[in-house]
Structures are given as structure tokens and as C-alpha cells.
């Protein structure tokens, strides 16, 4: 670990050696730091500058000049507040659904199937298999399945689950469904990684101590799998909040389900309104940071990330 090189030396005699090693550590870190500077910090600064730009007087479409137009933020939030709320609402729902679906799956593969490693790998492959097909194609396939004359809608109408003029595509249900479906592997894999290594003797110990299976699950299994839950929910929630494919009019969404990602896309690609797109991106980033910060604190796993 490169980080150990930074640890405070315990004896003064060893200091020259440590200093030398810390120099090596820095060199080793250099590519990573350069990468971060070049591909994260620099674009981020540029994004912040863009978000304060002002339109050029008498300029053509998409022409902006440097400025300090903080109203871009109030404009962006004022105009797209419902879309921001919708994005986080959908993302939270999708994360919860993904967790509820993935946990039993990961538990089954990681714990119950331990005796059959071959079956374990096979099942895991099945979880990842959808990844072999393009994200866009998968989403389009669902659109076909949920189409009004497809296999699902007429059945639901016959069962009176859907009203006769009801439909699925273009509804919030379709968008949340798409998000959940598309991010399930991101949830399952970290959960599996944790559950697969979990020592089942803890569960046996729970039973030995007269805990009911539910109590054992609550007090033993869940705390032990917390790192997986935290990384899984983060890997699902963060991209889901910014997703613009599922909610796009061209895929599962409609004008009633647009998320903040769609607003960023429209402002950037169609309206060429870069300051608003940049301001929205920064707002999205900030809100994610706040939500994730609170969540990680609450989950009490700062040291896991």
C-alpha cells in the first residue's frame, strides 16, 4: 500500500529511509493525481466558469462570454425544480427496488450456493449477462414489451389492473422500472462480494444464542453486509439520479417524466444553452454530494469508503 509510506515514522533513525520511500510513493501517485487534475479538476473548474457565463449581446445561438451571471443558477433551478425533485425521487425509488430485488439474489448466490461453485459462477454470469447487450438496446426492448399492443398491457387491461385507456410506456412506472432493471447488476455485485466472504458461523452463532432467523438477519447478516449495501446503493443511486436515457422521450419516458438529466441534455445539445446546462450539472452534483454525505454518515460506515 502506497499510503503506509505516509505514516509517521516511529523512530528517528529510520527517517531518511522513510523520506526516500515517501518520494517513491509520490512518484507512484503522480499518474493518478495527474489523471484527476486533467480529467476531473480541470473540467470541473471549466464547468463552474461556464455556469457563470453570460450571453453575448446580439450574439448568435450558443454564443456566451465569460462573466459572473449567478442568475443562471436561480434560472436553472426555478425552471427545472420539478425535474430535479423527480430525478431524485425516481433514483431513490429505483435504488430501494434494486436493493430489495438484489439482496435475496446475492444472498442466494453468495451464501446458499457456496457448496456448488460452478452453479455460483453460472448464476453470477446470468446476473451480469444483460451487460453483454447494449444499455440502449435493453431499454428499447423493454419499450417494446411494455408497448400498448405488446404482451403485457392487454393482459393487465383484461385483469382490470390497468384502465382501458391506460398504458405503461411514458409513465413514471416505466421510468423507475427501467432504472431499477438497468442498475440491478451494480447493486448485486457488491452485495455478492460481501456476502460471499461472510463467515456463516456468525449466523449459526446467532441461532445458538436463541435469536430468531429474522433477528439474526437483522442483527448479524445485515450489519456484516453493510459495506456491500452502502457501495451498491451508491453505485445505483448516483448514476440513476443523473440518468437521461430511461426517462428520455425516445425510450421509456414522456414529457411527463423528464428528469434533470434530460433538461441538461436539451440545454446542452438542442438549445446550446451551456451556462444553464453547466449550472444544472453543478446543482445535480451538489445535491448528490449532500444526499450521499448524509447517507454515509447515517450508515455509520465512513471508514468503509
Amino acid at each position: 500500500m502506497a499510503f503506509t509510506a505516509f505514516s509517521t515514522p516511529t523512530s528517528t533513525a529510520a527517517e531518511p529511509a522513510v523520506r526516500k520511500r515517501s518520494w517513491i510513493a509520490l512518484v507512484l501517485l503522480l499518474p493518478g493525481i495527474l489523471y484527476l487534475l486533467l480529467f476531473f479538476i480541470a473540467p470541473l473548474i471549466s464547468l463552474i466558469f461556464t455556469s457563470f457565463q453570460q450571453p453575448v449581446i446580439d450574439g448568435d445561438i450558443g454564443q456566451y462570454s465569460a462573466g459572473f451571471q449567478w442568475q443562471n443558477y436561480t434560472d436553472a433551478v426555478g425552471q427545472y425544480l420539478p425535474l430535479i425533485f423527480r430525478a431524485f425521487g425516481y433514483a431513490i425509488l429505483a435504488t430501494v427496488f434494486a436493493l430489495v430485488i438484489s439482496y435475496p439474489m446475492a444472498y442466494f448466490i453468495g451464501v446458499k450456493m457456496r457448496r456448488w461453485p460452478l452453479a455460483q459462477s453460472l448464476l453470477l454470469t446470468l446476473v451480469i449477462a444483460p451487460f453483454f447487450i447494449s444499455f440502449l438496446l435493453r431499454t428499447l426492448a423493454w419499450k417494446q414489451i411494455f408497448s400498448d399492443e405488446g404482451p403485457v398491457v392487454p393482459v393487465l387491461k383484461a385483469l382490470s389492473v390497468l384502465p382501458t385507456d391506460g398504458h405503461i410506456t411514458g409513465t413514471p412506472f416505466a421510468v423507475v422500472f427501467g432504472l431499477t432493471y438497468n442498475f440491478i447488476p451494480f447493486m448485486t455485485l457488491p452485495l455478492y462480494a460481501v456476502l460471499e466472504r461472510m463467515d456463516v458461523r456468525y449466523i449459526e452463532a446467532g441461532a445458538d444464542l436463541y435469536a430468531s432467523p429474522w433477528t439474526t438477519f437483522r442483527k448479524v447478516t445485515i450489519p456484516l453486509s453493510m459495506p456491500g449495501i452502502v457501495s451498491g446503493t451508491l453505485l445505483t443511486f448516483i448514476p440513476a439520479a443523473g440518468d437521461y436515457i430511461n426517462a428520455s422521450n425516445d425510450f421509456l419516458g414522456s414529457s411527463q417524466t423528464s428528469m434533470v438529466g434530460n433538461a441538461i441534455e436539451a440545454n446542452f445539445l438542442v438549445l446550446q444553452n451551456y451556462p444553464i446546462a453547466a449550472a444544472l450539472s453543478i446543482v445535480l452534483m451538489a445535491v448528490i454530494l449532500i444526499i450521499v454525505g448524509i447517507y454515509v454518515r447515517r450508515a455509520g460506515t465512513e471508514d468503509l469508503i
Binding site: Q79, S255, S258, A266
Partner: peptide
Amino acid sequence: TPTEETNYDAQFQKILLGS
């Protein structure tokens, strides 16, 4: 004109995004 283009596109996108 550029101004019209910006303005009309924005109004149309507003409907498209339901915002």
C-alpha cells in the same frame, strides 16, 4: 433570426420536457 431561434427552441423544449 438568432434571437427567435433561441427563444422558439426554448419554448418548444419547455413543452417537450414538461417543465
